[in-house]
């Protein structure tokens, strides 16, 4: 088990997502440092996959920019090593299971431990399929952050009980992308999780404004922002760092006190 759970002890957490290598590797290092300086408590690094089944167009396009910059698993590990020269902000990877499978479950988790990557978010690895990877994640102290969605229903208890680190609460049906209105009764969803575990919860999918952060921070232990940050990077390219720092600051400031 990693240090992730502690992040949520004293404050509500702001979790920021970037795609590794978008628009290039040096820029991503700067972006992660800027987000951490702005107040991000955890940075989620997307290891790009050719066919991201859970991602909307904004992140798909970021993946394409990252591939154009030569992104692959080895390069992303190099990037994390460079990040670790400049910040100790907690890191997690978001990626698809095939990339971990091809690297080797044991080797991938060992590499995460070596680089100080605390957890893995894997959208195409539901609870039933975690048995292949889980022993290695356990052994190397890497958290497997599960997703719980508005359709999880009866599945919530078993998923939450097995969770380590934190639980990624998916706000809405569908794929990633900014949404102006979130329809789900997130209060009810989070309280069903809280009934079976004290592992922190963070809400993602569609979250992008400080107002949403303020409101969702009342419901969960943190918020996760992906597409809105990726849009800033799409707009400002390798000059995005100051904008990201400012954005992280606004989102973190908007979160309620614990």
């Amino acid at each position: 088990m990693s240090n992730l759970k502690q992040v949520f002890t004293d404050e509500k957490a702001f979790i920021a997502f970037v795609v590794a290598g978008d628009p290039n590797f040096d820029a991503t290092v700067d972006h992660i440092v800027a987000l951490a300086e702005g107040g991000a408590d955890i940075v989620e690094i997307g290891l790009p996959f050719s066919d991201p089944v859970a991602d909307g167009p904004v992140i798909q396009e970021a993946d394409l920019r990252a591939f154009a910059a030569g992104a692959n698993t080895d390069k992303v590990f190099d990037l994390v090593a460079a990040v670790r020269q400049r910040t100790q902000v907690p890191l997690v990877f978001l990626t698809y299971l095939n990339l971990i499978f091809k690297y080797g479950y044991d080797a991938f988790c060992a590499k995460c431990a070596e680089l100080g990557v605390s957890g893995l978010v894997i959208p195409d690895m539901p609870y039933e399929e975690r048995a292949g990877l889980a022993p290695y994640a356990d052994q190397h102290g890497v958290d497997l952050v599960p997703l719980i969605t508005p359709t999880s229903g009866d599945r919530i208890a078993k998923i939450a009980k097995a969770a380590t680190g934190f639980i990624y609460v998916v706000s809405s049906l569908g794929i990633t992308g900014t949404r102006d209105e979130i329809q789900t009764d997130l209060g009810s969803l989070v309280s069903q999780i809280k009934a079976v575990t004290d592992i922190p919860t963070a809400i993602g999918f569609g979250v992008h404004t400080p107002d949403q952060a303020a409101a969702l921070g009342q419901v969960a232990d943190g918020v996760i922002v992906g597409s809105a940050i990726v849009k800033l990077i799409a707009e400002h390219g390798d000059q995005a760092a100051p904008y990201l720092k400012q954005y992280a600051h606004e989102m973190k400031a908007a979160l309620p006190a614990k």
Partner: peptide, 20 residues
């Protein structure tokens, strides 16, 4: 586990679809 053909098969899909 569930739905295997030898070592192949399984249900590697997003949680959103698992209940369905």
């Amino acid at each position: 586990q569930t739905g295997r053909y030898g070592t192949y098969g399984g249900q590697f899909i997003p949680e959103t679809l698992m209940s369905e």
